[in-house]
Design a protein around this nucleic acid. Structure first.
Lengths: 125, 125
DNA sequence: AAATTACGAAACAATTTGGTTTCATTTAAT
DNA sequence: ATTAAATGAAACCAAATTGTTTCGTAATTT
């Protein structure tokens, strides 16, 4: 299961809004480059380059069929993102959730569910 | 709950590996700019600019304390990412999970759990 | 066989990004 | 009152990003 080191990483790949639109589009259906670029105002070549970035990140796969190249979504690399995000779950669970309760409750006792404020330390790590 | 339109979006903000390291660092503890930049080889000013990008995306909050500026994580904007990602859950649940079962099972009957291949249509949307 | 279609490569340009060094300002320490 | 520390703003630079147009090539139609 060796993760091949891709030229572009997922974080980089999804940073661009056009590429996020592409992923959505290809989630519905496999499509040729010309059909895909019909959904955008930019040139076909520009779309093609975005597809290349997505392919380098492993987010899409391409397949030659006759003279056309069809792209389809491969969501697998998004698992890395999911994993990265999961680290921050605890912050939502602790801080934000209790904050929401506090804001919505009007009950000062709820304040106790807050974790103590962190102390600023000079020598961390 | 009007989402203020931030100058930088979350996707953009987390695209840079340095900024992802910053988020991790600030998750542990609130810190001053000097202390933070002590964790990086680049200049303090460079780190400061990364912090600015994160702040523009709402991912960190800053607070002036005397002559120093302390930054802390604000994970809330990551919920947008989580929401975006959730769209792709169905793909993992369908395609990948069944693929994994297929690959690992050696049982050709498992093949039936695959959804039919999508037909290429000229006129979508 | 000739024309058309689908596509990527290449060269180019504008803008953004990610870094630097220098400088001014505010606050704290001596 | 000076000096030192903490920081952001500004000017600058190299490289990457995002787009364009032009061209060549392979496959399909006519």
């Amino acid at each position: 299961m060796a993760e091949s080191v891709s030229k572009h990483d997922v974080f980089q790949a999804i940073a661009d809004p056009t590429r996020r639109r592409l992923l959505r589009l290809l989630g519905d259906q496999e499509m040729s480059v010309t059909i895909i670029s019909g959904h955008f105002t930019m040139s076909r070549t520009a779309v093609s380059k975005h597809l290349r970035v997505l392919a380098d990140a492993g987010l899409v796969k391409d397949q030659k069929v006759g003279r056309e190249t069809r792209y389809r979504l491969d969501p697998e690399p998004l698992l890395e993102l999911k994993k990265w995000l999961s680290y921050y779950e605890r912050f939502w669970e602790n801080k934000l959730f209790s904050l929401k309760r506090y804001v919505e409750s009007d009950d000062p006792a709820v304040m106790e569910s807050f974790p103590p404020l962190r102390v600023y330390m000079e020598n961390e790590e």
